[in-house]
Design a protein around this nucleic acid. Sequence first.
DNA 1: TTATAATATTCATTGTATTGAATATGATTG
DNA 2: CAATCATATTCAATACAATGAATATTATAA
Lengths: 123, 123
Amino acid sequence: MIEEQKIKNDPLEAETQVFKILTHPARIAILNILRDGERCVCHMEAYLGYRQSYISQQLAVLREAGLIQDRRDGWNIYYRVTNPNIYAVLDAVQNFTGRPVESSDGRVVSCNCPHCIAKENKG
Amino acid sequence: MIEEQKIKNDPLEAETQVFKILTHPARIAILNILRDGERCVCHMEAYLGYRQSYISQQLAVLREAGLIQDRRDGWNIYYRVTNPNIYAVLDAVQNFTGRPVESSDGRVVSCNCPHCIAKENKG
DNA sequence: TTATAATATTCATTGTATTGAATATGATTG
DNA sequence: CAATCATATTCAATACAATGAATATTATAA
């Protein structure tokens, strides 16, 4: 019925790669934390409650995929999203699955990074 | 520093499930074909050039995840998308990865389903 | 009621991702 | 320069997904 009309699926590789990265609750949670701007690792540890090395592993995946970037400031390493358009993707699925977009901030947790300490002293 | 503040990641399960389904070039290609409305299996076979059983396998994954639905009409089984909002997700990644949204129709392939035969005779 | 067309399922194999535990790195302070 | 803090990496064990090959199912037509 047809001879070798196979569509090269390479063009979809970029998409599938992104999806692969997002196939993971911890990674999505991390990205959600970064919605509000850059955050240090200990911050994520405090918010998510995962072991440090586990978070680092997931950060590595996100970093190697180019989704996030890091910046060292003294002891802490701050991560930020490379391209905020990633949130359009997250929002689209959240909309698809019918749950409201989640705002991660304003939770009662404590983190010792300078960023959070400063905030706490103000409040 | 913190005790048991672990965020339940169950709430992200729906999202990750959808992403998991989309982590696959053939499945994305199938969904793209269904952008223009329902299509039969042989149609996808003609367009994508995969073996029939392979396409059926991927259709089964999409179907079991609830992303698509089928309808039998004589010999052919027509598939359609359950919730078109899925395309907002696909569009978002495509936008994120910087490629234009792909329109699958208008290709020079032949498929023997009544739908296509009728079209061909008109053209 | 058998042959055939369209589609689906099963199963075995291989490949790839996840996770935990342990350990390493690299700034920074004293 | 040794101790410490925040973070990263490695490795091994397990779980999960992808693919091919073969076969099954179901509706239709003769």
